[in-house]
Simulated scan of single mutants.
Amino acid sequence: MAKKEKKTPAKPKPRVHKELQGLDITIDQFGEIKSNMNIEKLNEFLDQNVDDKKLAEREDYDEKGKKKKS
Rank of each mutant, 00 (worst) to 15 (best):
A2P: 09
A2F: 07
A2N: 05
A2I: 07
K4V: 14
K4H: 09
K4D: 08
K4F: 08
E5T: 10
K7P: 01
K7H: 04
K7Q: 12
K7G: 00
K7W: 01
T8S: 06
T8A: 09
T8R: 12
A10C: 06
A10H: 10
A10W: 09
P12Q: 13
P12C: 02
K13Q: 14
K13W: 03
K13T: 12
P14M: 05
R15W: 11
R15H: 13
H17G: 00
H17V: 02
H17P: 08
H17L: 00
K18G: 05
K18F: 10
E19G: 05
E19P: 01
L20V: 04
G22F: 11
G22I: 05
G22P: 06
L23H: 04
L23V: 11
L23F: 05
L23R: 00
D24W: 03
I25R: 00
I25F: 02
I25D: 02
I27Y: 02
I27W: 00
D28W: 06
D28L: 06
D28P: 04
Q29H: 12
F30M: 04
F30Y: 13
G31Q: 00
G31L: 05
E32M: 07
E32G: 01
I33F: 11
K34D: 05
S35T: 14
N36Y: 07
M37Y: 06
M37S: 07
N38G: 10
I39L: 07
I39K: 06
I39R: 08
I39P: 09
E40S: 08
E40Y: 11
E40H: 10
E40P: 00
K41H: 15
L42D: 02
L42P: 07
L42N: 03
N43A: 13
N43W: 04
E44F: 12
F45E: 03
F45K: 00
F45Q: 00
F45L: 01
L46V: 13
D47P: 00
D47G: 07
V50W: 02
V50S: 03
V50H: 02
D52W: 04
D52G: 04
K53R: 07
K53T: 13
K53P: 09
K54D: 15
L55F: 04
L55I: 09
L55D: 03
A56N: 00
A56P: 01
A56I: 11
E57A: 11
E57I: 13
E59M: 11
E59G: 15
D60S: 14
Y61K: 03
Y61P: 04
D62W: 06
D62E: 08
E63K: 09
K64C: 07
K64E: 12
K66A: 09
K67I: 05
K67C: 00
K68P: 01
K68L: 13
K68G: 00
K69M: 08
S70H: 12
S70F: 12
